[in-house]
Simulated assay, not measured.
Amino acid sequence: MAMAIESIPIIDFADFGDGTSPEAHEIGKSFFKACKDVGFAYLINTGIPQEMVDGMFDWSAKFFALPLSTKQKAPHPPEGWKHVGYSPIGLEQVSQMIFDPTELASIRKGKYPDYKESFDIFGQGPTKRFDNVWLPESDLPGFRSYTMKYWDTCRQFQMERLLPALALGMGLDRGFFNGYHGDGNNQLRLLHYPEGPVEMFESGEKGRMGGHTDFCTCTMLFQDDVGGLEVECPGREGIFVSVPPVRGAAVFNIGDFLMRWSNDILKSTLHRVRAPPRREGDGGKTRERFSIPYVCHFVHSPTRGRKC
């Protein structure tokens, strides 16, 4: 079924089963419509236990609470395309279709830097592109094993329900997309947006994450209760609507690759993260925010046996 919270549909996977029933086909149709009309949807009853999501947020908070010197024991490699390890506040700056060196330098060092830090993990399948970078186990015992278990659980939903539902909605065999994602080379991101003075965000001195689309097949995002995610309204350039947190739901969005793959039928929609507005009793501080995107990448061709 599909409903609307503001303009974001909710897709319920409770009756999807193995993808062969009439209910599964209806879910696929609703999912496809959401991806075509908006490019975003809330996903519920995914089979990813809420207690596991809560646990991952707990581990994320523990990681980012560590001293900077400890977090830097797992540094992001100097190559920008190796999306693993820890990136401190201000290192990663999001831009969209900007190639001029002067303008890029302004984004990286100018007035509007993204005020966030991150830790990235990639799948480690047989055709992995690079190794993950982890803290020593003694610095955060159990973090690595829980994080990879969470990665595996998201991957299971992707392959058993998410991609099959999208394929059914497009009138394809339910296993169509699975064949192109067989290596599991997906990315899990732990994101932390620290608290800061409200004036710092209202003045534009700092931001959280600028407007962008994702360079992937699709993304599932798990949010805490703070909010701040906004999506551009289809057909209304520059007009953004809030995507508030819904407990028990993951936020799904189409990536650029799938938009191109579908001949632009599916929509890779611009989105951003903004600091929440002032609240009474907040002491002039904007609350910190945590989010966990799980990014699904096309890797393996079943007919040619090579990576793209």
Rank of each mutant, 00 (worst) to 15 (best):
M200Y: 00
D256N: 09
L190V: 10
G39Q: 05
T153S: 09
M220H: 06
Y150G: 09
R247D: 14
S106C: 13
N178D: 09
D183Y: 07
T20I: 12
D183V: 13
V299E: 11
P277Q: 05
L258W: 14
H76S: 02
L135E: 13
G211D: 09
G55T: 11
R260P: 07
W81E: 09
R289P: 00
T303R: 01
V299I: 08
F143V: 11
K206H: 04
P9R: 06
Q93K: 03
P78A: 03
N178Q: 08
Y86P: 03
F257S: 10
K71E: 12
P197N: 09
E230H: 06
G284V: 15
P126T: 10
I107N: 13
I265T: 10
P126Y: 03
C296T: 09
T147E: 05
P9H: 07
D139S: 07
F215C: 01
G207S: 06
G55K: 04
R144V: 15
V84D: 01
T303A: 05
D131K: 04
P78R: 02
M200H: 04
T213H: 01
G85T: 09
L191E: 08
I10T: 12
E232A: 01
L221I: 14
K109F: 15
V231G: 00
I5H: 05
T286Q: 01
N185A: 11
T20A: 11
D58F: 07
V295H: 00
E92F: 02
P234N: 05
I8Y: 09
N132S: 10
R289Q: 00
E230R: 02
H297A: 05
G85S: 06
G175W: 07
F143D: 06
A65F: 04
